[in-house]
């Protein structure tokens, strides 16, 4: 049960940030919503629109201009795309305090392959960090469609607090102490969604989709383990749960990009391409094999589907659990 009247900061006013601000505001909390884009702040002040919904942002959601004011509350939801996260954290570092508890909603790694939680602790004095992931999209969360999410954090107190803040009818929020595992699940969503789009576009059928997602668990599991996480986390909501949901959603932006990639050879989605390249750089640094991500990466570099598929299929089959 959410105790109303707490102050929460939401950094980032994209679809996720606004949906979170809306839920928190509706639950009676005072929200400091910050965007780095001045025109967006202006529009939010006047229109107060919530994406995918006719509702407006509640009155207790305050649009703030500067980071000092944005970070006055101790509770922070971080909804900044990975490509901007690093520079923002450096800018915001002077206003972060040790009492801050930060949960990020970022499904991707920083440009250098660092999981977002580690980027936050690397750039600020904050130690209590978590990540929210799972088969949810911002609009569905706000509309209260039945689903479940997971908060990954070793800090039990932080998990309990965020679960309480985000109480929404129809949404179950689970917890996992394996923060890195949860983050890897979110990061692997992009290559798998692109691949799912390709499969959908060329009509490969449900068996291939099934192979993609189950081998995705092994692939992501290897990466999670190399980063200090646990393989088993990828069999949960932040891994297979999220990927199944995304792969079956023909309207998902990344799946659509995968379909475009199969159709035209161009995904036309730079952010998704960047996330795949980050994963590949990281896998090479860690010496971890990510064959599906490599196949998607090669297609993004112009390799035809048939050729990428051949490389993938010619790999010698090993132990399923390896």
């Amino acid at each position: 049960m959410s105790v109303p009247g707490l102050a929460v900061s939401v950094l980032g006013a994209g679809p996720w940030g606004r949906a979170m601000a809306c839920i928190l505001g509706s639950n009676g909390h005072l929200v400091h919503l910050w965007s780095g884009d001045e025109s967006k702040r202006l529009a939010l002040r006047t229109e107060r629109a919530v994406p995918g919904s006719a509702a407006a942002l509640p009155d207790n959601v305050v649009i703030v201009d500067d980071l000092a004011q944005a970070l006055e509350p101790e509770r922070v939801l971080f909804a900044i795309p990975p490509s901007h996260a690093s520079s923002l954290l450096v800018r915001a570092a002077p206003w972060f305090r040790p009492e801050h508890r930060v949960v990020h909603l970022v499904r991707g790694l920083a440009d250098d392959g660092t999981p977002m939680s580690r980027l936050i602790t690397r750039e600020t004095c904050v130690v209590q960090v978590g990540a929210l992931a799972g088969p949810v999209v911002a609009a569905a969360l706000w509309e209260g469609k039945e689903t479940a999410a997971v908060i990954g954090s070793p800090f039990r107190g932080l998990v309990d607090e965020v679960c309480s803040l985000l109480t929404v009818p129809g949404v179950r929020v689970y917890s996992s102490p394996d923060l890195v595992g949860v983050e890897v699940g979110g990061a692997m969503r992009t290559p798998l969604a692109l691949a799912a789009g390709v499969i959908r576009e060329v009509g490969m059928g449900p068996a291939v989709l099934s192979v993609l997602l189950t081998r995705g668990i092994a692939e992501a599991g290897r990466l999670a383990e190399a980063l200090g996480g646990e393989r088993s986390t990828l069999s949960g909501l932040s891994g297979i749960g999220d990927w199944m949901f995304t792969a079956n959603d023909a309207a998902d932006a990344v799946v659509c990009a995968g379909m475009a990639l199969a159709r035209t050879g161009d995904a036309a989605y730079p952010e998704a391409e960047r996330r795949v390249r980050t994963l590949l750089t990281l896998s090479s640094r860690l010496g971890v094999e990510l064959p599906i991500t490599e196949a998607v990466g090669s297609m993004l570099s112009g390799v035809p589907l048939q050729e990428a598929l051949e490389v993938l299929m010619m790999r010698s089959p090993g132990l399923e659990s390896a």
Binding site: E74, V90, A93, P98, E99, R122, E123, T124, C125, G157
Partner: peptide, 19 residues
């Protein structure tokens, strides 16, 4: 003084506080 990753001093007592 405790230092953040950018070498700025801060009071670490906040790690033990809530509200």
């Amino acid at each position: 003084d405790s230092l953040d990753p950018h070498g700025r001093p801060f009071d670490p007592a906040g790690y033990l506080l809530r509200d």
